[in-house]
Every structure is written in structure tokens, then in C-alpha cells.
Design a protein around this nucleic acid. Sequence first.
RNA 1: GCCACCUUAGCUCAGCUGGUUAGAGCAGCUGUUUUGUAAACAGCAGGUCGUCGGUUCGAAUCCGACAGGUGGCUCCA
Length: 625
Amino acid sequence: MADQTNPNDPNDQLHAMRHSLAHIMATAIQKLWPETKFGVGPVVENGFYYDVDINDRGDAKISEEDFAKIEAEMQAVIANNLPFERSELPIDEAIVWAQEHAQPYKEELLNDLKRAGTTVAKDLNADELGTIASADGATQVENVSFYRDGDFVDLCRGPHVESTGKVGAFKLMRVGGVYWRGKDNNPQMQRITGAAFATPKELRVYLDMLEEAKKRDHRKLGQELDLFVFSDMVGSGLPLFTPRGTIIRDELSNFTNNMRAQYGFQKVWTPHITKHDLYEKSGHWAKFGDELFLVASQETSDKMVMKPMNCPHHTRIYESQPRSYRDMPVRYMETTTIYRDEKAGELGGLSRVRAVTQDDSHVFCRQDQIETEINNLLACANELYETVGMKLRVRLSYRDESDGYLGPQELWNAAQTQLKNAVIANRLDYFEQEGEAAFYGPKIDFMATDAIGREHQVATVQLDFVQPERFGLDYTAEDGSKQTPVMIHCALLGSIERFMSVYIEHTAGKFPVWTAPEQIRLISVNQEPETVAFADAVSKQAWDLGLRLTVDNSNESVGKKIRASELMKIPYTIVVGDKEIDSGQVMPRIRKDMAVQDEAHAIGIEEFLKTVANEAKARVLKTSL
RNA sequence: GCCACCUUAGCUCAGCUGGUUAGAGCAGCUGUUUUGUAAACAGCAGGUCGUCGGUUCGAAUCCGACAGGUGGCUCCA
């Protein structure tokens, strides 16, 4: 959800309100559980949270049932309208304060802060740092500030509002377990998250958006619209696609395949299992070895694995022939399923699965071809997301200073610059982020905004100087020398499963004609032989036009059959009885989101079918009927 | 993998603090009805209450393990 306020802007009044609410919540929790140890309590998009540990023994936990209690305490603090008093202490005295008040987490933060410029900058993100002091991480901290609301004192940079009465509207949302400072070998605390806005009305709007998101949850719609299922017998993270869901998958991947075919991509096919040696060579084994599915062979002693990505396979095809500079670029694409042994807690619906289908592609090209190739891929991405009606912006994902990356720094710098130039040349809205790169190269990650304002990571274009080197790929240049090609990885949909989760929620299951599993439903008024014959004839015409039309000839009232069609969110419904048989015309019932005019009008049956077929071909979102 | 919560019919949900044959609506099936733009009527069938183990005279209900799911954390080639 787009947020008008900047959570990092300390001058923002809403920011101060949210910060103050975190403080007030801490006050309330301290009152209810006096032994509580506090972690950090920053402002986040749409609200605030506080990480707490309500007792040492770990045998007591805050649950959602406690929210009413906490909120009541908070309201009491707010009703008192006590001023927030700010004070400052030298850092060493602050550490003593933390010790005396048995606040080991605060003590740890203060000690890190004291060594500012060393560990703080690295381990603490700006937000967490911001909750305790005003240091920027690079300078030595001398004083830290405290805020007091009545009895409760909290170490905090602020700013806070003047008094506890001026905090706007809030609601506690959820509680979840978190690792102290995000490290999984640290103790676990509880994070209480609240939503907060300047007015009750704005809070209401936000809560309504969450309601709407719940209604269009792809797991719910996947069930209701019969798109995919899971089976305990098959396993977690392994979705099974029904006929309807499979149509959507195929339409999407055909689209991105055709688009790339126009830019010279050729389809290839590679097996789903391989010797693990392939990934030893690529570098993936060292980094992701424990997330591969192992396959035991009863015939050979080879250690086999399910493929977790396709790039190493594609390098084998490239390498199978000598390549000339004239052959470049070589462009392969393959829409195929890869397998990753994701941890159980990371799975969810179609968003994160263990069998991931990628519309994967790899370009092998010369240095001087990079720009054109990237431009082509950016054009494809633009066309795809324009067609599905999602706004795009891109993240330039760079490496950071850690040692998890392969290849020389100069190559990285060059690659990062080239990606940025391509993005600027294509006038894409972008932002840059360090630490988001793949281990073999920087990426352009596409973020799409859906119909209710949420942003999702989808397509990706990645530059790779490392794998061609490791696999010893080459081509013969004009002067007869051997040169190493550059690899460009790209997936336009990304993971089809993940894309579908986004797409289902974006459309709320109201698929446009081109992806709709069922495009037209024909409802018969009765089961007389003439009606059935007419329905069959229309059905045949539709089939010849490549349309997905189904006939509902069941012995039910027309009203009931209309309702069933509406519930399945089918784009067009036509009712067929004596009138239609006599006139040869139908009155299409158009799904509301697609209609451009209010009143329906009669149209010749053949013209209707042809119009719908053209709409499917053009992949339009609105009807021309 | 870690923390918390959840799992009753194909779906959505009742079933109070353990007590005789576990209920409803929708969907399904069978009749009747031949229907005109969001639900015709009647009947039938459908559950070893996620699985396994324990406590108890007695478990859908209490305890434990496992599986699956949800919300977080961590991770994401």
C-alpha cells in the first residue's frame, strides 16, 4: 500500500505519532508484565512495532487475546495526556541505566552504539539505530536521549509528539516470533505490530484495504475458481494445477515465449535431474547445496540432484559447438520447472513453492551487444506488465561489501553501470539497492504494483560474467582470438506460480478474456432438442475460433445458472432459447469490470464470437461489445 | 529451520466446561419441474472429527509426537 508518509523522515508528524505509540505500547506492556525486556521499537510502513521478551524463563507469551488488555492500558496512557519529557545522558551513564533496569537488549545496543562506526553500521539497520539514538553510525556517540511518559522511561531517539494524547488512531494487528537482531542463533522475542494513522478514517481505509486483500487472496480464489490444489500425499509446496489453472499457466507462458521468439530466442529443453558436478562447477553447490533435492540412483554411483536452475545446463548447449563472433548473440529460452528444498516455514500458497516453473532465458553475447540485448528484454517486460495492467518500477540490485560474491570487483562495477544505463535509457522508474545482487552478478529486479497498491517482485534481468568464466565458454573473435561471452539471465514472469499468485490477486479472479479459463458460458433455457442442437452448433463455431466456451445444459432455472456463471467470474454469459434460435442474435451478459457501457444490446451470434476471439488475441482488458 | 495459532462432509461453518446414534447450508445424486438474466421443490447419500500414541469408566473435546495450513522471523540462485 502506498504510504504518503516517509517512515524515515523524523520531521514527519505521523512518524512522531507512530514512534510515540511504540513508546506508549511499551509503557502498557511494562505495566502488564513488569519483567519485560525491550528490544527495538521502530516506525514501519502503516504503523509501528516493538520487540519484547516478557520474561526470562520464556514460559509466558503475549497472545492475540492479550491485545484488548494492552490496548486498554494504552488508551489509559493516552487519556492521561502526559507530556513526553526528553532528556539526555552520556552513553556510559546510559549503559549503567540499562544495567540497573535489567534491560540487556538495550545495553547491547548501547554498547554497539558506543563503538559506532564499527559494528553498528553493519549490524543495525538505520531504522533500528534510529530508535535509540541520533547517530548515523559513522560518528562517535556521546549522548543518547530518553523519553518519559509519566512513570515509564524509554531509551529513544524520538521524535515524539508533545504528549500522549496526540497520537491519532491505532490498532494492534499481530504478534509474531522474531530473532533478536534478525539472527537465527539469537534468542527469540515477540514482535507486537500495530497499525497507526493520523485519523480514525485513515485507519479505517487501511483496514478496509486489508479486508479487500483477504477477499482476493489467491489461495481462497484458487479454491473457489478451481485453479489449483494441494495434496498432503504429494507434499508441502507442491501445487497441482487443475484444467482451469493450467489454461492460465499456458496462456501466460505462451505470451512471454512468443514475445521473446520475436527477439530471436530459441526454445531448448533440458532434463530435470543432473549430476551434482554441474553445480560444483557453476558455484551453486557451495552456496545452495543444502537446498537441493538429492536423487538416489540405483544404477550409477553418481550423485544426482533435481535441477534448481537452468543456467548451467544452457552453458552446456552453448559449449557444444565452436562459436564465432558472427553467431552472437546466442539466445535460449526454456519454460521449465526447477526444484528447491525450501524450508517448511518459508512456503505459502503459490507465492513460494518447491516446484518452481520459470520462463527462463539466457543470452550469450559479446560485450558490445549487452546494451541491445538488455533493451530488448526491458521492452518485453514493459509489454508484459502493460498487458496485465500493472505498473512497473525496477530495483537495481548491486553487491555489497560482503564476501558472498564471485568475480573481480572491476567487472561488477562495469556490469552495474551498464544495467543502470539501460534502465535510464528506457526511462524506467528505478531505485538502487546494495546487497540484493545474485552471487554471480548484479540484477534488474522488476517490482509490479497490483490493483490494490501492493508491490510485488516479479521479472528479473541479470548480468553474469562469472559463469561463462567458470564454464570456460568462449567464441572466436574477428581477430582470431578466443573471447569469453557475457551471459544475461532473464525471467519475465519470474516464477509462473508466484506470478499467478500476484495475477490472481491483482485481477481478483476476474481474468480478462485471453487468460480466462472459460471465456463464454452458454446457458440453455430448456433441454428441448432444438435448443440442444443450437447450443452444439454455437459451441462448434466457438471451438473453430479457438474460444473456450462451455455449455450449461443442466436442468436448473436460468437464474440459478446465471448465478453459477457469475460466481465463476466468467467474462461472457449468453442465454439461448427460442428467441435466439429464431433471431440468430444473442444478448451477451458482460462481466461488470469489462463493460464500457451500461446497457446490453443484441448482436448476431457469429459477430459476437468473432469479436470475443479478437479480444482474446489482442489481450485487451475491456470489451468492445 | 525457529516462535505462535489452526485442522469437524467436496466447500463454508455449528458442536458450552470430556457423557448416549457428530449437526446445518451450499455442492453431489434421484425424482418432480422445462425454467428467460444472481439460488424451483422434495427425498437420498456423504464424516474412524488431520494421523499415530497417551490420560480416562468414557475423548471431536485433555496431553504428546508427526503431517498439513496460517501469521511472523530467517532464507530466496
